[in-house]
């Protein structure tokens, strides 16, 4: 076993690679792990599980782990995607078991398979957002008003231009909006992919600006990652 986890000393040697796609959860306290820290977290997880990971070849070999879609800090999800390459073929359920045995609280691998689609097929994410307000405004009614505007203008931070106003009306596809106890529950589909991404926080911050309300509690969960034709990304 030990020999397998060595990266190749001889750089001329081409090591065969076996690609896997893992679908994982990031919930509870683990939702505060930043995207930047996730890479380091997983590289330690694989080391603990003694998984024979494949290293990029070259001057500065690095573990090959790839997250095609970033998840906003604080958002929960059971459908996150990670691609990884190994130097040997491992049984998928064994791989999953070994990794899950050494995962920190709130993180879990739900599925492992050979990648089918390519990252550029990702086009949409669906979110479920539950919130309640500090004030006793009728949150459902007020949020409906926000969504039914002719234009939904929100402030977006752009690297080049700083803060700019954008209209996201055509991007926001509301799947359902109702009450769940004291919470308002919103199900929404938003573009997320190479061409265009609208973060759920854009929609939710837009509401704050629109209404002047503050959230008392807000929980956001990504529920699906979809292709252009609304198939689940696999």
């Amino acid at each position: 076993m030990a020999a397998n986890i060595n990266r190749p000393r001889n750089m001329a040697l081409r090591v065969e690679r076996f690609d896997y796609r893992m679908i994982f959860s990031k919930t509870g306290r683990a939702r505060f792990i930043s995207h930047l820290d996730l890479m380091r977290t997983f590289s330690r997880i694989f080391k603990r599980a003694r998984i024979p990971v494949w290293y990029t070849q070259g001057f500065n070999p690095r573990l090959y782990i790839m997250f095609p879609l970033a998840l906003a800090l604080g958002t929960e999800s059971d459908v996150e995607i990670m691609d990884i390459s190994l130097t040997e073929e491992l049984d998928e359920s064994e791989l999953m078991e070994r990794v899950n045995a050494v995962m920190p609280e709130g993180m879990h691998i739900n599925k492992v398979y050979k990648p089918v689609m390519s990252h550029k097929d990702i086009a949409f994410s669906e979110y479920e957002i539950r919130f309640c307000l500090v004030s006793d405004t009728d949150a459902l009614k007020s949020f409906e008003e926000y969504l039914s505007q002719e234009q939904i203008i929100v402030k977006k931070h752009s690297k080049k231009k700083g803060e700019i106003d954008v209209d996201i009306k055509s991007d926001v596809q509301v799947l359902s909006l109702d009450k769940d106890g004291e919470f308002v529950r919103l199900s929404v589909r938003l573009p997320s992919g190479n061409d265009k991404t609208v973060n759920s926080s854009l929609v939710m911050d837009g509401y704050k600006a629109f209404s002047g309300e503050e959230y008392k509690l807000i929980y956001t969960t990504r529920t699906k990652i979809l292709t252009k034709s609304l198939e689940t990304f696999i």
């Binding site: 509870g28 306290r29 683990a30 505060f32 930043s34 604080g74 995962m103 609280e105």
Partner: peptide, 12 residues
Amino acid sequence: KPARYIGGEHGS
């Protein structure tokens, strides 16, 4: 860096 204030790390 909120991860510093919430615990839940591996080994805790």
